[in-house]
């Protein structure tokens, strides 16, 4: 099996697969949206009314204000990776959706692209919802926060693409778990959403350069608080580069998985 990347065979038909997933979501949106909507809400309540009362941050920032922009990094990460993870795997192996689609004018690259765009869309839906919630909690300081959905695009694409790579490699639905337990859950806790990373030892701070959700958390913090610096462009570029890299890898791995 060669891993050379021939020219991607892409067409606008990729969006038809996106639309198929959208149609399914419209059939099942109540079941599908309970979890991603309720969980961040409960988290904010618990942290704001509970933990927030006993945490004292340096400066006049409340803990709730500190945590809110971090949620924009981690919950959409969950939404995008679980969609391209369990849901894509389900479409791939149980429902054999891609087998059916491969018999139509769509190419395998169209299928991969449609799936990445769809999982990223799930991430963006989550982003917008959380933005509304944290605004309602009064934790948004700057109108720059309106740019969050746009700035979230690279991060959502990255998480969709890397999770689809894992799906393309998975031998069973259980083997998807390694990625979530070893890669996503640690990022959930160590992204800098829950505590400031700049208090950590030097080596840990350097390590955080490799943590995608840490870049996303920094970026959204800048926008929500209104303290944009040139460094934020670096975070955005990091995420965009990683998204591109893993999208290319997803194209390769899905070809290997689907074309026999």
């Amino acid at each position: 099996m060669t891993l050379a990347l021939p020219r991607p065979d892409l067409s606008a038909r990729a969006l038809c697969l996106w639309q198929r997933n959208w149609d399914v979501l419209r059939n099942t949106w109540v079941e599908e949206t309970v979890w991603p909507f309720v969980e961040p809400l409960v988290t904010l309540l618990a942290l704001g009314l509970g933990l927030g009362r006993i945490v004292d941050l340096p400066g006049d920032e409340s803990y709730l204000e500190f945590v809110a922009p971090g949620l924009l990094a981690i919950f959409p990460m969950w939404a995008a990776t679980s969609e391209a993870g369990w849901s894509s795997y389900f479409r791939l192996e149980s429902e054999r959706i891609f087998d059916a689609v491969m018999a139509t004018p769509l190419s395998v690259d169209d299928i991969t692209t449609g799936e990445v765009l769809w999982a990223a869309t799930r991430g963006l839906i989550s982003t917008c919802f959380i933005l509304v919630v944290i605004a309602a909690f009064g934790t948004v300081a700057s109108p720059l926060a309106l740019l969050v959905p746009l700035a979230a695009v690279p991060a959502c694409l990255f998480f969709a693409a890397i999770s689809l790579c894992n799906t393309a490699l998975a031998r069973s639905v259980r083997s998807l778990n390694y990625f979530f337990v070893l890669y996503i859950t640690p990022q959930f806790w160590l992204s800098g959403a829950w505590f400031p990373l700049d208090g950590l030892p030097e080596w840990a701070q350097r390590l955080s350069w490799w943590v995608p959700s840490a870049h996303a958390a920094e970026l959204f913090r800048g926008l929500v608080r209104g303290g944009l610096e040139w460094g934020h462009l670096g975070h955005l570029a990091w995420l965009a580069g990683a998204a591109l890299l893993f999208y290319a890898l997803a194209l390769l791995l899905m070809r290997r998985r689907l074309v026999h």
Binding site: R20, N27, A100
Partner: peptide
């Protein structure tokens, strides 16, 4: 490999978009 998450009608409609 019909789409189990869609209705009979939607199965045809969604497929027609692929073409």
């Amino acid at each position: 490999n019909l789409d189990p998450e869609l209705t009979v009608w939607q199965n045809l409609r969604v497929f027609s978009r692929y073409y």
